[in-house]
């Protein structure tokens, strides 16, 4: 007796066309992609992006999916991302996804939302910002607290002006570099007193947070998320109202290859978005 197979290979990559490429910051570009297949994703999910002969890398979606068109904001740092940096409009690449657990946006409704990002960590949070702007009345006070090394490493600066009409922006850099060499027009006002110099955690220390009605979505280097979460807990927030998005090495995205395992959790499947309560204090992480 022969047995029927139930599935096609979930690792099979699909084609996507590059409809637009936009320079966001030093070494960072946003690719607008479309595919012939129906594509839907939740904010915080990711795709495996790749090319034959180069490999695949997990990249978060950096915008809400609009009629099948989706965006990835990619910093060129590794084998795959460095290869992608030369892609132009009209080129085609391969992807598969979306994978993973999304930001609990529903849970944030009627609450004060703290969106806290560091560096390219803003990319996975931009879909959340877009949802907030679309349905502003569904949420309480919304603040974006964003830090980057300097303004040359800051993403989506041209959108800040639109964002700050509806949400409070707190911007900080570690240092100010030569503004004239920035790919963006120099920006003078980051909201709430313009650009700050210092750590994101310093901004948070000075904020007024109503812990019982606040929810925080945090994405950035793990060491930064550690101190942000601890800072927010000092403000009285509970571990389960803090959400973080983790980065791990991934090969499959479908809880098989084992690379992203974090104390029995598969970051690709059980995350990448976790409540801080789920991942705080686990070994081989710094949260």
């Amino acid at each position: 007796m022969s047995h029927e197979l139930s599935t096609m290979n979930p690792l099979k990559p699909l084609r996507a066309k590059v409809d637009d490429v936009k320079i966001e910051a030093e070494g960072v570009k946003t690719y607008t992609l479309s595919t012939e297949f129906p594509f839907l994703a939740e904010p915080g999910q990711f795709n495996m992006i790749g090319y034959p002969g180069v490999g695949e890398a997990p990249i978060s979606l950096s915008a809400i999916v609009n009629d099948g068109s989706f965006k990835h904001t990619i910093k060129s740092v590794g084998r795959v991302t460095d290869f992608l940096k030369d892609f132009k409009k009209g080129d085609e690449l391969f992807f598969r996804g979306p994978y993973g657990r999304s930001w609990p946006v529903k849970k944030a409704e009627k609450k004060d939302v703290l969106i806290i990002a560091g560096g390219v960590g803003l990319a996975p949070l931009r879909p959340v910002i877009q949802i907030v702007l679309k349905r502003r009345e569904a949420f309480g006070e919304v603040s974006l607290i964003y830090g980057a090394r300097n303004e040359k490493n800051m993403l989506f600066m041209d959108e800040f002006k639109i964002w700050e009409k509806d949400i409070s922006l707190y911007i900080t850099v570690d240092e100010v570099s030569d503004v004239s060499k920035s790919p963006h027009p120099p920006f003078t006002k980051g909201g709430r007193g313009g650009i700050n110099i210092g750590l994101v955690t310093d901004l948070i220390d000075g904020m007024k947070i109503k812990p019982e009605r606040a929810i925080a979505f945090v994405c950035g280097p793990e060491i930064m998320m550690r101190f942000i979460c601890r800072g927010l807990i000092m403000h009285g927030m509970s571990q389960s109202s803090l959400y973080v998005s983790l980065e791990r090495r991934m090969k499959c995205g479908i809880a098989q290859c084992g690379h992203c395992q974090h104390s029995g959790l598969f970051v690709c499947q059980d995350g990448p978005v976790f409540s801080y309560k789920e991942v705080c204090g686990l070994p081989d992480g710094v949260l």
Binding site: S2, H3, L5, S6, T7, M8, N9, P10, I254, A255, Q256, Q269
Partner: peptide
């Protein structure tokens, strides 16, 4: 599991 590997599945069933 949630995602089935077709190679493993084929061999397992056969």
């Amino acid at each position: 599991g949630a995602f089935k590997d077709p190679h493993y599945e084929a061999r397992r069933k056969n």
